[in-house]
Every structure is written in structure tokens, then in C-alpha cells.
């Protein structure tokens, strides 16, 4: 049986990876502290309020994580204009001919689990596939809901102009009750997103064996050698990178 040869391709640049893990960290901390704020645990304590401030600390962590999450998100928006082709904003918009074809492929092969008669290499996306890309646009919109409702609720506690800018959100939604409810519901949608996201990373890694999981740590994915020859499918940057690596290896 013939063995497939893979080439290492630099897909996720440093800012993309840093963005990913900061998002993981802040969303985790926001969810945990968010649950605590919504329903604090029962503590039967004889201590006086003067000696303790743990709930204030939980809230502080929530607000701090929110700021980090927000600025991290702004950085990613910037990077979607200056980053490589896999980080570009167009990855998240599937409504063109090429990407819609990919959507169809992903729905057939990955979601409905149909088997392909002929294995077409170009169907395997190097960066995000079209469905995944679109799901990140949805995630971005969910994050915006959280930013608007969150800063909206925070506005009256703050003297800084940034949260104050979102002061109109709460009245527009019909009061704190509604804003809190939407903040909470959207968090659940994000939890469900994370479940599906992690499952699909494992799914692709297991079925395609291209280093899907480790790519968010190292930045590299493995792409079939035949694919690299197709100039359409890869960036010049990546080709250069591969050539350099190749030179190093041959020298060594």
C-alpha cells in the first residue's frame, strides 16, 4: 500500500493562537464566575461582612476577564485584515461559489457522514473549512451580544467612558431583567458552541490525521504533498516557509 506524504504548513500565526487561548481562558473564567454570580453557593458563616470580600472578588474577576476578552477580540479583528490568508476575514464569510461548494462537501462528508466515491484532496481545507469559518462568525456575533449586554449592565457601575458607551443597551432591551436574561442565554449558546467545537476538533484529527489539535499550539498543519503543488491552495508565505524548512533539513 502506498504511503501518503505530508508537508508541514504554517497555518495559524502567533497572534491567532494567542487569541485562541486567551479566548479559551477568559470565556472559561467568565462562565465560571458568571454562574457563581447568578447563583452564589450557600455559605453558612458566622463571620462579619467586614472580614470577607469573596463575592466582590468573583465579580472583579468577571469584569477583568471581560475587559481582556474584549480587547483580545479587537486584536483579532485587526489581525483579520493584516494576518495571513487563513486569518483573513473572508474565511468567515462562506457566501461565494468556491466556499459554498465546500459547505456542501462538509455537510455531506463530515456532518451526514456520507462516504466519497473519489477522494478529492482540494475538498480538505488547509485552514478553516467553510462551515467552521461561518460558525466562527456566529460565535463572533454571540460574543458581541455578550459584550453589549455585559458592558450595558456594567455601565452604571463604571465611571469610564468605554462601558458608559454601552449604557443605551439595557433600556433598549427593556431593562436589567431582559439584559441579564439574554446575557445568560447567550452564555449557554456559547457553552453549546464549545462542546461542538471540541468534538469536531477531535473528529477531524481522528479521521484526517493532519494534526488538527496540535495546530493551535504549534501553528502547523500537515498537508498532503500533492496538494502543495497546487499554487491556488497555499500561500506564498507557506511555500517559502516550507522551502526554508526543507533547506534546513537537507543542510542538517
Amino acid at each position: 500500500m502506498a504511503t501518503n506524504n505530508f508537508k508541514r504548513v504554517f497555518v495559524w500565526e502567533m497572534p491567532v493562537r494567542v487569541f485562541h487561548w486567551i479566548t479559551v481562558g477568559t470565556v472559561t473564567s467568565l462562565t465560571i464566575t458568571g454562574f457563581l454570580i447568578a447563583n452564589p453557593p450557600a455559605i453558612m458563616s458566622a463571620s462579619e461582612a467586614t472580614g470577607s470580600y469573596w463575592f466582590g472578588v468573583v465579580r472583579f474577576i468577571h469584569f477583568l476577564s471581560a475587559y481582556i476578552f474584549f480587547f483580545n477580540m479587537l486584536m483579532r479583528i485587526y489581525w483579520s485584515f493584516v494576518g495571513n490568508k487563513f486569518a483573513h476575514w473572508s474565511n468567515f464569510w462562506p457566501f461565494n461559489k468556491k466556499r459554498l461548494k465546500n459547505v456542501l462537501h462538509v455537510l455531506k462528508v463530515d456532518v451526514l457522514l456520507m462516504n466519497e466515491k473519489e477522494h478529492d484532496l482540494t475538498n480538505l481545507s488547509v485552514g478553516h473549512n467553510a462551515v467552521a469559518g461561518f460558525s466562527y462568525l456566529v460565535l463572533f456575533l454571540l460574543a458581541l451580544v455578550q459584550v453589549f449586554t455585559g458592558f450595558g449592565l456594567y455601565a452604571d457601575m463604571s465611571g469610564w467612558f468605554l462601558p458608559k458607551m454601552f449604557g443605551w443597551v439595557v433600556p433598549a432591551l427593556g431593562g436589567d431583567f431582559a439584559a441579564r436574561m439574554w446575557h445568560h442565554v447567550t452564555m449557554w449558546v456559547m457553552i453549546i458552541f464549545v462542546m461542538i467545537h471540541i468534538y469536531l476538533v477531535f473528529f477531524h484529527d481522528w479521521l484526517e490525521g493532519r494534526g488538527e489539535t496540535s495546530s493551535m499550539i504549534s501553528g502547523y498543519k500537515f498537508v498532503r504533498k500533492e496538494r502543495i503543488r497546487d499554487p491556488e491552495s497555499i500561500t506564498e508565505q507557506a511555500v517559502e516557509k516550507i522551502e526554508k524548512e526543507f533547506e534546513k533539513e537537507t543542510e542538517g
Binding site: 447568578a38 447563583n39 457522514l113 436574561m181 445568560h184 442565554v185 452564555m187 449557554w188 457553552i191 453549546i192 462542546m195 461542538i196 468534538y199 473528529f203 479521521l207
Partner: peptide, 24 residues
């Protein structure tokens, strides 16, 4: 409330993912 709806949805999605993994 949001928690009750969220828990049901998360369990349903989790079950769906396990089923998808097996079928895959």
C-alpha cells in the same frame, strides 16, 4: 429559566455528538 433551558439543550447536543461520533 435560562439555566433549565440551557441544561436540556446542552444534554441534547452532547447526546447528539456522542451518537455522531459512534456513527462516524
Amino acid at each position: 429559566n435560562a439555566d433549565k433551558v440551557g441544561k436540556v439543550a446542552a444534554v441534547a447536543v452532547g447526546a447528539g455528538l456522542v451518537a455522531h461520533g459512534v456513527v462516524a
